[in-house]
Each structure stands twice: as structure tokens, then as C-alpha cells.
């Protein structure tokens, strides 16, 4: 008899929707481009929120695979996207471990910290390796829009999951 390793908050249908949406948004990067909304960050939002709920260990490997797929698709260095996705997953997991699922404010703090840290690292990387100074205005708008999106997505996800309870 097959026993479940953990109680999953999302049922199969909800899980499928998550993965479909994730792949859909990931694939849309070959068409949709905006200097003010980084789709990479949107994927980070999705992973961060998903990490707060119960998951199977296969999800971690799947997210790593999505990262490699994105690297192949967009021509990034191998491992870069997986690193990015897993960082948000790790952050989401730590956030939920410390605060418990549903603690809104601490989640926001963690998420803002993650986005801020990545932006600083991105800025340093481009400055030292390509002598390019990041456009802080666009970066700031990017961060604000991503955080606003996080608030909406979090509420939507909470109500979506509550349908299952």
C-alpha cells in the first residue's frame, strides 16, 4: 500500500494548475518583454508562495529542472535559473518555518529581503563584469511591481487553497 510522505495542502488539480501556469509564464518570456516587469521575478513570486505549503521532495528536483530548461531556452549560464528558483524556494521555506503559513507580514519581509538582495547582487555583477551601472529607476519600479504582485498572488493563492480545505 502506497503511503503518502506528507500531507499535501494542494490537491492534484491545484498542483497541475501551478505547474501549468509556471511553465506558461516561463515560456512567455520568449515573447513578452518589459523593462518595468521582470518575468523572472514573477516566477520567483510563484515559487516563494508555493514553498510555504506542503510539498513532495520531487518538487525541489522539478524546480531545478525548470531552471535548467529556462537556461537552455534563454541562453543563460547553466545553473543560473535553478539557483535563482531554489533561492526563492529556500527563502519561502525558511519564512514559513519561522512564521507559519499564513503569517502575512513576515512573509513580505522575507520576500522583500530576497528581491533586494538579488537586485544588489545583480547590480554588482553588471558593474564589475560589464562596467554597466544599473538603471535604478527601472529596478525600483520592477521591485515595487513585483511586491504588489506578490501581495495579490498571495491572497489569490490563499483563497485558491482554502477551496480545498
Amino acid at each position: 500500500m502506497k503511503t503518502q510522505t506528507s500531507f499535501i495542502s494542494l490537491n492534484n488539480f491545484q498542483n497541475s494548475i501551478f505547474h501549468f501556469l509556471f511553465i506558461f509564464i516561463l515560456s512567455s518570456q520568449i515573447i513578452v518583454t518589459s523593462p518595468y516587469l521582470n518575468i523572472f521575478y514573477i516566477l520567483g513570486v510563484m515559487i516563494f508562495i508555493r514553498a510555504e505549503y506542503e510539498y513532495n521532495w520531487k518538487l525541489i528536483l522539478l524546480i531545478s529542472f525548470y531552471g535548467l530548461y529556462q537556461d537552455t531556452l534563454l541562453g543563460f549560464q547553466f545553473g543560473f535559473s535553478s539557483l535563482f528558483f531554489l533561492f526563492f524556494f529556500f527563502l519561502g521555506q525558511i519564512s514559513s518555518l519561522l512564521s507559519g503559513t499564513g503569517s502575512f507580514l513576515i512573509n513580505i519581509y522575507f520576500f522583500v529581503f530576497g528581491i533586494f538582495l538579488l537586485s544588489i547582487l545583480e547590480g554588482f555583477f553588471f558593474f564589475f563584469s560589464h562596467s554597466i551601472i544599473i538603471d535604478f529607476y527601472k529596478l525600483f519600479i520592477n521591485m515595487i511591481l513585483t511586491i504588489i504582485l506578490f501581495l495579490f498572488a498571495k491572497r489569490f493563492f490563499n483563497s485558491f487553497v482554502s477551496l480545498n480545505v
Binding site: 525541489i60 528536483l61 531545478s64 531552471g67 549560464q77 547553466f78 545553473g79 543560473f80 535553478s82 539557483l83 531554489l86 533561492f87 524556494f89 529556500f90 521555506q93
Partner: peptide, 12 residues
């Protein structure tokens, strides 16, 4: 997660 993070960091 941490092991994979370290692995991909080394890969990059």
C-alpha cells in the same frame, strides 16, 4: 534544497 543550491552555485 541547500545541497542543490550549492551544486548550482558551483556550476555557475
Amino acid at each position: 534544497i541547500t545541497s542543490l543550491l550549492v551544486f548550482f552555485l558551483i556550476l555557475v
